[in-house]
Amino acid sequence: MRLGLIGFGNIALTLLGQLAETLDAPLEHLTVLSLPEMEAETEARLKGDFASVAREAVVVTDARELLAHRPGLVVECAGHAAVVAHVPPVLHAGIDVVIVSIGALSDAALEAELRAAAIAGGSRLILPAGAVGGIDLLAALGAAGGLEVRYRGSKPPLAWSGTPAEQALDLGALSEAVTFFTGTAREAARDFPKNANVAATLALAGAGFEATHVELVADPAAPGNVHEYSVVSPLAKYSMRIENLPSAGNAKTSVSTVYSVLREIRNRIGPVAI
């Protein structure tokens, strides 16, 4: 497999570590698109810590160079700005892209641009389930219409550092759970781009950004990143609660998100996809 990665932060590093441990054989080729100022450091890490992941590995700094190495699949794990800058030309070139920063699609114009690029290139924009389960059932029920979806995301207070919650609350002093945001999935994904990818995933799979109700909670008793949602449809009703451990390098990201991307890659490589 020829794999491309957009980004070389916590998610990419964890993913590469898992690939090194779980692949039966090295990738044929790995191309990593990094920030120009991180190019040398990224090359050193690939040659050192991740030398066993691929038979060949190169670092590039823009989408044109990434495409020159002919990846069969590209994984974006670098944030909303990277989706805007790099994903459209990759899709337009006919290459499937797995997007981790699903919240970027809360920008309706960007979502339309990505869909148009995929149609023009004959490629697919792949949205992994990430830190939440039951997306297959939600998407199936969505075909019947009439969905009601309510989502509640709870994290330890300091996991909300660097977000608007910091202006509303003294995160370090909370002694009980506080709901600091109530609104639509579009608003949540826009205002909390590093914390609300689950809300965007649920919206895209089900009732849409405006019809998906979201609550965000800072909870000092949270056992990790907790995702709860309920679905009511004419066909079925269900609810789900998932307690995710945070990623070792970033409390905002659930470690299961990385394994969700790993599943997408392994489904491409293996003889059976599930």
Rank of each mutant, 00 (worst) to 15 (best):
A120W: 12
A140Q: 14
L141W: 13
V87L: 08
A129I: 00
V90A: 07
G133F: 01
A129Q: 14
D136A: 15
L110C: 02
A104R: 02
L91R: 12
V100A: 13
L91C: 04
A81N: 15
A140H: 15
I102Q: 14
L138A: 08
G121A: 00
V87S: 05
L125M: 14
A93N: 12
D136H: 14
I102C: 04
S154L: 11
V90W: 12
G133Q: 04
G145H: 07
E113G: 00
H86I: 00
S101W: 11
E113Y: 03
A139F: 11
S101Q: 03
V98E: 05
A108P: 02
A118S: 10
S123P: 05
A131Y: 03
A82M: 07
K155R: 15
A104I: 06
L147P: 03
A140S: 14
L127T: 01
H80N: 07
A78F: 06
G142P: 05
I119K: 15
L138M: 11
H92D: 13
A116T: 06
G79P: 07
A109Y: 09
A78T: 03
A144Q: 12
S154R: 09
Y151D: 00
G142W: 08
W160L: 09
S161M: 09
A118I: 02
A78G: 06
R152P: 00
A144T: 08
V83C: 11
V98L: 09
V97H: 12
L125P: 11
G134P: 10
I126N: 05
H92K: 15
L141D: 06
S154P: 01
D107N: 14
P128I: 01
H80E: 09
R152F: 01
A78H: 03
A82F: 04
D107R: 09
G94A: 01
V87N: 04
E111R: 15
A118E: 08
V87W: 07
H80G: 00
P128G: 01
A108C: 00
A116S: 14
G130P: 04
V97Q: 12
C77L: 13
I95V: 15
A159T: 10
G121D: 03
G146M: 07
L147K: 08
A81Y: 14
G130S: 05
L125C: 13
P88V: 02
W160D: 06
E111W: 06
A112K: 15
G130N: 08
V149K: 06
V97C: 13
I126Y: 09
L138C: 09
R115N: 12
K155M: 13
K155Y: 12
A131L: 03
G142I: 05
S123N: 02
A131R: 03
A139T: 13
H92Q: 14
G130K: 05
L147N: 02
I102F: 07
P89D: 04
R150S: 12
W160C: 04
A112M: 10
V87E: 08
I95E: 04
V149C: 08
